[in-house]
Design a protein around this nucleic acid. Sequence first.
DNA 1: GAGTGGTCTAGACCACGCA
DNA 2: GCGTGGTCTAGACCACTCT
Lengths: 259, 259
Amino acid sequence: MLRKIFKKEVLPLLPLTPLLMTEATPRLPQYQFLYETLRQQLHNGTYEIGSLLPSEKELQLTYKLTQPTIRQALSMLAEEGYIKKFQGKGSVVLPLPVGSGMLSIEPHSYYNCTQEPEIKTTILTRSISSVFPADFCFQPENTTASFYYIERLRTVNNEIIFYERIALPTSELPNLQRLTLENRSLFDVLRKRYNVIVKGGDEKVWAMTVPSEIAHIMHIPTGKPILRLEKCIETNRPHLTFYSSLYACTDKYLLKGRF
Amino acid sequence: MLRKIFKKEVLPLLPLTPLLMTEATPRLPQYQFLYETLRQQLHNGTYEIGSLLPSEKELQLTYKLTQPTIRQALSMLAEEGYIKKFQGKGSVVLPLPVGSGMLSIEPHSYYNCTQEPEIKTTILTRSISSVFPADFCFQPENTTASFYYIERLRTVNNEIIFYERIALPTSELPNLQRLTLENRSLFDVLRKRYNVIVKGGDEKVWAMTVPSEIAHIMHIPTGKPILRLEKCIETNRPHLTFYSSLYACTDKYLLKGRF
DNA sequence: GAGTGGTCTAGACCACGCA
DNA sequence: GCGTGGTCTAGACCACTCT
């Protein structure tokens, strides 16, 4: 009966992040907590771009965690392009990946990128439906479930760049309907309000001539080439997978990502 | 002086993979060896699609490795879409990700995919140059180095789908010039001959109207929408990063990937 | 309840970059 | 030679699925 005397005493680390602790919020793993903490610091500009993050050793001492736990958090940051690790040197802080979550945008190189682009989001429709959109590339296994269905436009410097439709299962996200989504990253909302983090997913992409309905919605001339991007997005919750179908006008801004 | 008596005796695991053991081939980590082994088995059809991989416990016993090591190998397989892990259940074997390395193709859903597409690769040009192609999106930091430069066409069922240009630093890949690359995945060559594995990278993508030179090379009508995909690909060797610039005709086959 | 994957500790050795 | 990240062991507890 002499097990685990140490852990609960030494580590009141967890509840630091401001969370909406609703029913059945899963316990946040330490590596994820550290990830969130560092991520926030990186967004705050706590570390200068090009400088070194505190070493794994320092982080171990600061947060009273062991190397593998630290490493897991740092790996996540490295995967997402926040830092780049160099053996024998340290973790270099990279410029913030701009844009919205998994997907970011960048002006074509021949546009002089004088300043940060201003990104706005407008919600066109929001509803709850038990019929999953038939034209989505990825289809859920459980077709009887009900879904939040969101249709939105994103503008960059007041030009329409994205038309996106998203479907999220209602079962795992109580009260999502009540939250404000205008001008907010959906991923931020999921992370901050529900502790849901995106783990990865599948995507399909192709080029096509813009269909006339879409040209009308996005205010672009018919006949233009446009990018179509379909995603199936998996999260840290086994039953929470959601779907996105995107049209992107890539005349001025291209899509950027890591793999 | 009683350290590490056990390790070298118990584990003659490493040199099983058929390797070109040239000068300075780095030692293959155990997790990577296990990854290669399982990956090969998955390609061989050793495990049925939908069935469960041996549990982590079994793998520990079979390969005499500990859980974190096993987990790292399985995570890599999961990331690449070979398996999907389920807590409390096991790792389900998924259908092989078709195609060429990081990027695979799939017929549009309205084409009935009766059989496996036949993929062929034709090398158009191969050279060594110290001038890096100026129109690549990503540019190397060290511009004085020399590069292998490969230009290739890929066909699916005898239709030209990809026109790709690749630049690889010569310094880390001795004798690459001598190897056959026709109808082989470049990633396979790198993995099998040099122990180089792709760790990840950055990519940029946009839709455009096919330029006339490209239309000519790919034998497609001018004016068609086409996909442009640029990549900067990082490997397990810190100084080995290579670059790809791809035009993809996505009329019949779309691009598929994981993130 | 048995078995599976998910998280974590404590400590070791190795390979690399830099002064 | 020192500090950094990279690999690995040995063993623990937890959360989940299945029966």
